[in-house]
Design a protein around this nucleic acid. Structure first.
Length: 563
RNA sequence: GGGCGUGUGGCCUAGUCUGGAUAUGGCGACAGCCUCCUAAGCUGUAGGCCGGGGGUUCGAAUCCCCCCACGCCCGCCA
């Protein structure tokens, strides 16, 4: 497909590079009053031995554009797409492509996105929830730009955390625990984990027993393996249920134990031993890069997490052309050292890593162990309730089921959006009033603009397919119409940008701006009551609905038909 | 102490990689807009030495150096 905005960009770059006889043309995106693309001519001045102003003037003189116009403003050139081209191309593409609008040609590349990968010891809390939300959005973005994406959850079913949980399950009687506030498997089991943890800190005997469990699992003791995997599976089941509500699913759950069992870890060990960057200290193998040293095995030869993770990444690398890992910032050292280890092994692809900082609550970091956290389940429930209140406040014509369904869509959207809208590396402090913000820069705002578009089309009631033939879309020439179309046209550029920079928050930003633009159009331009251009505007509303819906889809947020 | 990251109006935030033309929006505040397609909306006003200080440059929120604050990491845990 040929998106107008990208076609214009290609044309400008081609023309300018041929006029100036240079390879690289750095177009920038100016404030919207100035146009769609801009070229500051300062950088070329030294080389061409002309003033930036003269360069701009001579390019403006020589350039021939089919898809846009150029205007010189001092040392700058501002390019503007031809409105008629923009309008026709954009609206027709929306109609032709529908849900696929915004997608870029499939590129026949496989990508594995690993995200969440939380220890299966308790329910997901907000601190952890940032990971799946970023990860799932990244996966959706890359699907949109043509990748074959698979998402994976790396399950630590043999580590210390599961050992503690399993010990608790085997040795603690439920009567010793506080009542569980929520009847959900991960919430029930985490109490055993937390209690075991506190016992372990107090009693050396408990610690020893847990250590011996760790030893048994490394020796391949069947019963221990069984109990560990059973318990981690159960907690995992709870996590899956929570994520399902946010429309997040993993294609594959890869367990650490499977990597040990099928020899992948031994294999990785053999490869690592050969590296010069590896050495032993009291028989424990470690890998060292310029800055850090990470241990791969214990002195007794058993594997440590970094080695198993290397094995996992070798396994993934064999199955994909590109890898992305979404990790908490506490994994930064581990992650970057692992990248250099994989590099030293000659493994390709090396994973790109998106590190996100934590979500704190009341300025405190959340901890599963201490029980100091707000669970994702709680947030989702509260968001649902609050959304339901809002629905009931403005609608009395809906059934309970309908209201509830909308509340779910709106509530979950608000939760996802609130977390994904911020740049991953930025620290976040969880605040209820922000998570439950349904106005302004929020998911409900965007969903509302979608519902408004849907409502207009529903009221009209005609056959959407006929819209283009009933009206002449080239009549859409008013500024409010053009600006909305321009925003819709920007979708492919935005999604491409979000993918290249691996920055999901950019998509959130765009979706918001698109919704805002539609709301402005909605205010100024009657559609069903239009004196003229009714069908043309209906076509624009239809195109808007498609674009907003697709943008929400990329964010994993549902687009309601009414709310 | 060292490494990495973050610091933009009362609060949240875009822009930082690839330096450019008057720094993006939202929340909150204040003032307006529902005889008209859902006011979860729209319009306007106030609010900023872009953490501080040096430097590079024709030009710095953006690049370099120093400092300050906060977060994460510095386990034969994961």
């Amino acid at each position: 497909m040929e998106y107008a905005i990208l076609e214009l960009e290609r044309e400008i770059i081609k023309e300018v590079s041929s006029i100036l006889d240079i390879e690289k043309v750095n177009l920038e995106i100016p404030a919207k009053e100035r146009g769609d693309y801009a070229l500051p001519c300062f950088p070329y001045a030294p080389h061409l031995k002309k003033s930036p102003m003269d360069i701009a003037a001579s390019i403006a003189e020589d350039i021939r554009l089919e898809k846009g116009t150029v205007e010189q403003e001092g040392p700058y050139l501002n390019f503007k797409i031809n409105d008629d081209y923009l309008v026709r191309n954009t609206i027709e593409l929306c109609f032709e492509m529908g849900e696929e609008y915004g997608s870029i040609d499939p590129i026949n590349k496989k990508m594995i996105v690993e995200h969440t990968s939380a220890n299966p010891n308790g329910p997901l809390h907000v601190g952890r929830a940032r990971n799946p939300i970023i990860g799932d959005t990244i996966a959706r973005i890359f699907k949109k730009v043509g990748y074959d994406v698979e998402t994976q959850f790396y399950v630590d079913d043999i580590g210390r955390q599961v050992a503690i949980l399993s010990w608790g399950m085997a040795n603690i009687d439920e009567s010793e625990l506080q009542a569980c506030e929520r009847d959900k498997i991960d919430h029930r089991l985490v109490r055993y984990y937390q209690h075991a943890n506190s016992l372990m800190e107090k009693e050396k005997k408990v610690l020893d027993e847990i250590k011996s469990l760790m030893k048994s699992i490394e020796e391949g003791d069947e019963d221990t393996i069984e109990s560990f995997s059973e318990n981690s599976e159960r907690v995992l089941k709870g996590m899956k249920e929570s994520l399902e509500r946010l429309d997040i699913r993993h294609d594959e759950y890869k367990t650490e134990s499977s990597l040990i069992r099928d020899g992948a870890v031994d294999e990785a060990l053999k490869d690592m031993e050969k590296l010069e960057a590896c050495d032993r200290e009291e028989n424990a193998l470690y890998f060292e890069d310029k800055k850090h040293k990470i241990f791969l095995t214990r002195g007794d030869g058993t594997s440590l997490y970094p080695l198993r993770d290397i094995a996992y990444h070798i396994w993934k690398a064999e199955r994909a052309d590109e890898l992305i890992d979404v990790l908490g910032e506490d994994h930064k050292v581990h992650g970057t050292v692992m990248q250099s280890a994989l590099n030293a092994l000659g493994v390709r692809p090396i994973p790109d890593m998106i590190f996100h900082s934590f979500v704190s609550f009341d300025g405190q970091r959340m901890s599963t162990r201490k029980g100091s956290y707000v669970t994702l389940d709680d947030i989702m429930d509260v968001a649902h309730e609050r959304a339901l209140e809002e629905v009931l406040k403005r609608r009395d014509d809906l059934s309970i089921e309908e209201s509830d369904e909308i509340a779910e869509i709106v509530g979950m959207g608000a939760v996802r959006y609130n977390i994904v809208r911020v740049q991953p590396e930025k620290p976040m402090n969880f605040k209820w009033e922000e998570a439950l913000n349904f106005q302004g820069n929020s998911a409900p705002f965007i969903q509302y603009s979608h519902a408004r578009a849907a409502s207009i089309l529903r009221k009209w009631g005609g056959d959407h397919g006929e819209l283009l033939s009933k009206g002449d879309i080239s009549k859409l020439t008013e500024p409010g119409e053009i600006e909305l179309i321009r925003k819709i046209a920007l979708f492919p550029r935005e999604i491409k940008n979000a993918a290249v920079s691996e920055a999901p928050h950019l998509m959130a930003n765009y979706a918001y701006e698109l919704g805002a633009m539609f709301n402005q159009f909605y205010r100024d331009h009657p559609v069903l009551n239009a004196d003229v251009k009714k069908y043309e505007r209906l076509a624009l509303v239809k195109a808007s609905k498609i674009a907003i819906g697709n943008a929400l889809y990329v964010l994993g947020i549902k687009a309601p038909e009414y709310m």
